[in-house]
Amino acid sequence: MELTAEIAAYRDGTGDPGRLVGEFRRAVLLAPLADGDAGAAGGLMSAVSGGIRWFYAFTDEEALARFARARGEAGREWPYLAVLGARLVDAVVPQVDGPAGVAVNVADGDGSMLFPPVSGIVPQACAVDAGQDVASGAVA
């Protein structure tokens, strides 16, 4: 199943978190380049919300175009990198000073998904829940 289908299944309550993360890691995503944003790590477009840096990523050019329209910037060129989801969390996230995750298809409402900086998604050294027993919330 492709990532958009896994996102839909997960949001409908029928998806499997492991399959969702697996599809995210295998998916080739479009990561827009920052346009002179000195705060963006690695030259990729991102935003900070809730103390987390979220890198924008899109499953296809149409999803990126919806994002551009939502920002009122559909008339400009949107350069991007095609990158595996695994590369974003395994190579880009560790370069950020502080917690970081990936926001997929953020302009799509019910088709969007956040991949937060937690164990099982980002490297353990970057996970905000590292050292905790996730099931009980206890610190290991």
Rank of each mutant, 00 (worst) to 15 (best):
A86D: 14
R11K: 15
V106Y: 11
Y80F: 15
A86M: 09
F67Q: 08
I121L: 07
F67A: 02
M1F: 11
L29W: 03
V89L: 01
L30A: 00
S49F: 11
A140E: 12
A140H: 13
F24L: 03
G137D: 02
M1C: 09
A135M: 15
V89A: 09
Q124A: 15
D129N: 15
E73C: 00
R53G: 01
A57K: 03
V89R: 00
F115M: 04
F58D: 02
D35I: 03
M45K: 07
D110R: 14
G51P: 12
L64M: 09
V92F: 08
A57S: 07
E61T: 04
S112T: 13
N105Q: 09
V122N: 02
A5R: 13
G137K: 01
G13H: 02
C126A: 15
Q95G: 13
A135G: 08
A107S: 14
E62L: 15
P123E: 07
V102N: 05
L88K: 01
T14Y: 09
E61D: 01
R76G: 06
T59W: 04
A40N: 03
A27M: 00
E2F: 05
P17W: 00
G22T: 03
V118I: 15
A107D: 10
G22Q: 09
A130S: 14
P17A: 06
S46T: 01
L29K: 00
G39Y: 02
Y80T: 03
D16H: 14
E2K: 13
D60Y: 03
A5D: 10
P94H: 10
A103T: 09
W54P: 06
D129M: 10
V83Q: 10
A82I: 03
A82Y: 03
G109E: 15
T59Y: 00
D108E: 15
L3S: 02
Q95V: 14
Q124W: 12
A103Q: 11
G72C: 10
A70I: 07
E2V: 15
V48Y: 09
P116L: 10
L88Y: 02
Q124G: 13
V122S: 05
A34L: 04
G98L: 11
V139D: 12
V92K: 05
F115C: 01
C126Y: 05
R26I: 02
G109Q: 12
D97K: 15
G137T: 02
P117M: 10
G42L: 04
E6D: 08
V83A: 09
L30I: 00
V21F: 01
P123I: 05
L29R: 00
G43N: 06
V92T: 12
Q132G: 11
A127H: 01
W78P: 04
V102I: 14
C126Q: 13
G75F: 05
A70F: 05
I52C: 06
G36E: 06
A63P: 05
